[in-house]
Measured scan of single mutants.
Amino acid sequence: MDTYKLILNGKTLKGETTTEAVDAATAEKVFKHAANEHGVHGHWTYDPETKTFTVTE
């Protein structure tokens, strides 16, 4: 398992979190669910070198 990071750049919610996942696709599902639960919808990017997802509203 690897550690993946999410950076939230929402209009009303900003922050960072991490998750352990077997691959980037699994981490993305976890992060998108969490972002949706917090009402953050926007443009997603992924940097494979740093294993970091970013969502920007």
Rank of each mutant, 00 (worst) to 15 (best):
M1N: 09
M1F: 11
M1G: 09
M1K: 13
M1W: 12
M1S: 09
D2S: 13
D2V: 12
T3P: 04
T3D: 04
T3V: 13
T3F: 07
T3E: 08
T3C: 10
T3G: 04
Y4T: 01
K5F: 08
K5T: 13
K5C: 06
L6G: 02
L6R: 00
I7A: 03
I7H: 05
L8P: 01
L8Y: 13
L8R: 01
L8C: 09
L8T: 05
L8G: 02
L8M: 14
L8E: 03
N9L: 14
N9E: 08
N9Q: 09
G10R: 03
G10A: 06
G10F: 15
G10I: 09
K11G: 10
K11I: 15
T12S: 11
T12E: 13
T12Q: 11
T12F: 15
T12P: 04
L13E: 09
L13T: 13
L13K: 07
L13P: 04
L13F: 15
L13Y: 15
K14F: 12
K14C: 15
K14R: 12
K14N: 09
G15S: 12
G15A: 15
G15Y: 15
G15F: 15
G15E: 11
G15M: 15
G15I: 15
E16P: 04
E16F: 11
E16H: 08
E16S: 09
E16N: 05
E16C: 12
E16K: 05
E16L: 05
E16R: 05
E16T: 10
E16V: 08
T17N: 06
T17Y: 15
T17G: 07
T17S: 11
T17K: 12
T17V: 15
T18V: 09
T18P: 02
T18I: 08
T18M: 09
T19K: 04
T19A: 07
T19H: 08
T19S: 05
T19Q: 05
E20T: 12
E20C: 12
E20K: 13
E20S: 11
E20G: 05
A21Q: 06
A21D: 02
A21I: 02
A21P: 00
A21W: 01
A21Y: 02
A21L: 02
A21H: 02
V22C: 09
V22Q: 12
V22A: 13
V22M: 13
D23L: 03
D23F: 02
A24M: 12
A24F: 13
A24V: 12
A24C: 13
A24R: 11
A25M: 09
A25V: 11
A25W: 10
A25G: 08
A25P: 08
T26R: 05
A27I: 01
A27H: 00
A27Q: 00
A27Y: 00
A27M: 01
A27N: 00
E28A: 09
E28W: 15
E28F: 15
E28L: 15
E28V: 05
E28N: 04
K29V: 11
V30P: 01
V30Y: 14
V30L: 13
F31V: 01
F31G: 00
F31C: 02
F31R: 00
F31E: 00
F31H: 01
F31I: 01
K32L: 11
K32R: 15
K32S: 05
K32H: 10
K32V: 08
H33L: 15
H33K: 14
H33Y: 09
H33D: 14
H33R: 12
A34H: 15
A34D: 06
A34S: 09
A35R: 01
A35Q: 03
A35P: 01
A35H: 03
N36S: 14
N36E: 14
E37F: 11
E37N: 10
E37G: 08
E37R: 10
E37V: 13
H38Q: 14
H38P: 02
H38G: 08
H38S: 12
H38L: 15
H38C: 14
G39W: 05
G39A: 06
G39M: 06
G39R: 06
G39K: 07
V40Q: 03
V40N: 03
V40H: 03
V40S: 03
V40R: 02
V40M: 08
V40D: 02
H41Y: 14
H41P: 03
H41V: 13
H41R: 10
H41A: 10
G42A: 03
G42E: 01
G42Y: 04
G42R: 02
G42Q: 02
H43A: 12
H43W: 13
H43Q: 13
H43L: 13
W44D: 00
W44S: 01
W44T: 01
W44K: 00
W44C: 02
W44Q: 00
W44E: 00
W44P: 00
T45L: 07
T45H: 12
T45M: 09
T45D: 12
Y46L: 02
Y46S: 00
Y46A: 00
Y46I: 01
Y46F: 07
Y46C: 01
D47M: 05
D47Q: 06
D47W: 04
P48R: 07
P48T: 07
P48Y: 07
E49Y: 11
E49V: 11
E49I: 11
E49H: 12
T50H: 07
T50C: 05
K51R: 13
K51G: 03
K51L: 11
K51P: 01
T52L: 04
T52E: 04
T52N: 02
T52Q: 04
T52A: 04
T52R: 02
T52I: 07
T52Y: 03
F53Q: 00
F53I: 01
F53V: 00
F53E: 00
F53W: 05
F53L: 01
T54F: 07
T54E: 07
T54C: 08
T54S: 05
T54D: 03
T54G: 03
T54I: 07
V55C: 06
V55K: 01
V55M: 04
V55I: 08
T56D: 08
T56E: 09
T56A: 05
T56I: 08
T56Q: 07
T56V: 08
T56R: 05
E57S: 05
E57F: 06
E57V: 06
E57N: 04
E57A: 06
E57H: 05
